[in-house]
């Protein structure tokens, strides 16, 4: 079985050099201007909170909301972990943007041929067994690429080795059912702009619970409606028949058959 890949981002080790973004822009052939926010030309970006740098990008959920909501299936979670996007399928409805719990997908609003832009965890490289461009470029090891299981184990080890250095949480281990991006931080995550109230089970289950009942609704509803029609219509037939009989004076006939 293919090992799930992931990236462990240790916020305490990040010095804010922006090498990750530079490498990302080279890898994805995006304009090389430095950007502070995610955009169609910045799949990852650094935010600063009182000297603490946090890099953001797509979280690559284990059970991605975007892949679930997309009406044409333009998003796929690859076996290695990256969540990739297929512009050839996209119709531009932006349900992915509307529902992403991390507010990641970006759109080129100015274009007449718009599409979604987001980090794809260097899916091509990862498929060949290579690490992502940003993790290779990181000079301090703040972003580390590896197998998800091993990275989670390592994160626990780091927390254990230096008690008090980290807050007691690996962000991304459980959020919306787990993500392929994991964070360690010395500052509470909510102070760094992370959404910390997200549920721990995958979001797609919320809609699938309803959608999966559709066959029942159709079967029961259809039978119910047909039944109602049959009864009301039959009642009408009988009434009309009786009236006709009355008018013709043939009361002794049987009720009408079908």
């Amino acid at each position: 079985m293919i090992q799930k890949k992931a990236m462990l981002i240790d916020i305490t080790m990040c010095v804010g050099c922006n090498e990750c973004q530079k490498a990302c822009k080279v890898q994805n052939k995006l304009s090389d201007v430095e950007e502070k926010k995610l955009s169609p030309t910045a799949y990852t970006a650094l935010s600063e909170y009182d000297g603490v740098f946090v890099r953001r990008q797509c979280q690559h959920c284990e059970d991605p909301t975007c892949a679930s909501v997309c009406p044409v299936g333009a998003f796929t979670k690859t076996p290695e972990g990256p969540v990739v996007y297929d512009v050839e399928k996209c119709i531009g409805c932006r349900y992915c943007m509307q529902s992403c719990p991390f507010q990641v997908p970006r759109y080129d609003w100015e274009s007449l041929n718009p599409r979604i832009y987001k980090c794809i965890l260097c899916a091509d490289l990862v498929k060949q067994g290579l690490p992502t461009a940003c993790s290779e470029a990181c000079p301090t090891g703040a972003t580390k690429f590896g197998n998800r299981d091993e990275l989670i184990a390592e994160a626990y080890e780091r927390m254990k080795a230096e008690p008090g250095k980290y807050v007691d949480k690996i962000y991304g281990q459980k959020e919306v059912g787990g993500t392929s991006i994991l964070y360690l931080s010395g500052v509470p995550f909510e102070q760094l702009g992370f959404k910390t109230t997200l549920q721990q089970t995958p979001l797609p289950a919320l809609t699938w619970n309803v959608l999966s009942k559709i066959p029942n609704v159709v079967a029961i509803g259809g039978t119910f409606l047909y039944g109602i029609w049959w009864i009301t219509n039959r009642r009408d037939e009988v009434r009309q028949y009786e009236e006709r009989m009355k008018n013709n004076g043939h009361d002794q006939h049987d009720a009408p058959g079908h």
């Binding site: 299936g73 349900y95 309803v210």
Partner: peptide, 8 residues
């Protein structure tokens, strides 16, 4: 292009 998991 079907995605039966999508409400849309």
């Amino acid at each position: 292009m079907w995605n039966p998991h999508s409400v849309m």
